[in-house]
Design a protein around this nucleic acid. Structure first.
Length: 271
DNA sequence: ATGGGCACCTGGCTGC
DNA sequence: TGCAGCCAGGTGCCCA
């Protein structure tokens, strides 16, 4: 998926079209997403206005008057704002139709994305309740990370990708943040020094912030609300660069597998 | 509690 | 040209 920068870019792109609009319909073409989508959802949504669009971790929260739509993009999902009559593409699974003659259209080839209707405080929803702090907000600092990492034997790469520890960091930005902070992705979380946690926190913030400014990273599927890709790919130091020279020292970038995911790192810059 | 592995899905690419 | 095998921005769940 889309990691935090891609979800945040999507949020910024869809917000102005959605906020204040009334929902005039909901078209569900494929309800078999990660979890089955309620086929009667349109009955609930129609007539409500969009209050605002928020993000928590990699979830988008579309706040309506009587509840919240909780949307996840999975690995290959994207949300676009389009005219209601825009031609359909394969894997266009649902449309949230607005009174502006536009719609919010969800496309997701792999169908790992999800959509839930939540009433009450969305933070209490089971999918959100156990999540860690937002990396770009207070609450994510070296003290916090070091405390969480104590006695943990998992590799630091998997540790920073654990959404219960900190949210928003996925496979691309985990490799990139570890490169920027000079930490070997194999190192046990509990054996990372205090000084290195300081650098890691800074690197996570920097890489996510820079990626948001570039509109995210597009590898294959990801496009923003206007259908254009993100440009952070050019700024990647290690991700998908196996065999190519390290941009800092020239050593060939290495790739290996951790937890069924590819990790990329520079064996000489990261210890 | 922690760690590890699998599952869910489609599509693009590689190599025989 | 066809097809098997592998890989891909995520994460809930099950097992030891």
């Amino acid at each position: 998926m889309p990691e935090l920068p891609e979800v945040e870019t999507t949020r910024r792109g869809i917000r102005s079209a959605l906020r204040g609009s009334a929902i005039t319909g909901f078209v569900l073409r494929e309800h078999r997403l990660r979890w089955p989508v309620d086929r009667q959802l349109g009955r609930e949504l129609t007539g409500q206005h969009v209050v605002d669009v928020h993000r928590r971790a990699k979830y988008l929260l579309i706040e309506l008057e009587r509840g919240t739509l909780l949307s996840h993009l999975g690995m290959s999902g994207s949300l676009r704002v389009l005219p209601v009559d825009a031609p359909l593409l394969t894997h266009d699974h649902y449309d949230l139709v607005l009174d502006s003659r536009q719609c919010l259209r969800f496309n997701d080839p792999r169908r790992f994305g999800s959509l839930h209707w939540v009433t009450g405080d969305p933070e209490l929803h089971p999918l959100l309740a156990g999540l860690g702090p937002e990396p770009l907000e207070r609450g994510f600092d070296a003290d916090y990370l070091a405390a969480k990492a104590k006695r943990r034997r998992v590799a630091i790469k998997q540790f920073v990708m654990d959404q219960r520890i900190v949210v928003g960091v996925g496979n691309i930005y985990a490799s990139e943040a570890l490169f920027r902070s000079g930490i070997n992705p194999r190192r046990a979380a509990g054996r990372v020094s205090r000084e290195r946690f300081e650098r890691l926190v800074g690197a996570v913030r920097d890489v996510l912030g820079e990626a948001i400014r570039q509109g995210g990273t597009t590898l294959r599927d990801y496009v923003n609300a206007e259908g254009t890709p993100g440009y952070f790919r050019q700024k990647l130091f290690v991700y998908e660069r196996a065999g190519e020279p390290c941009r800092r020292c020239g050593t060939p970038i290495r790739q290996f597998t951790q937890g069924q995911r590819s990790t990329y790192y520079c064996p000489s810059c990261q210890k």
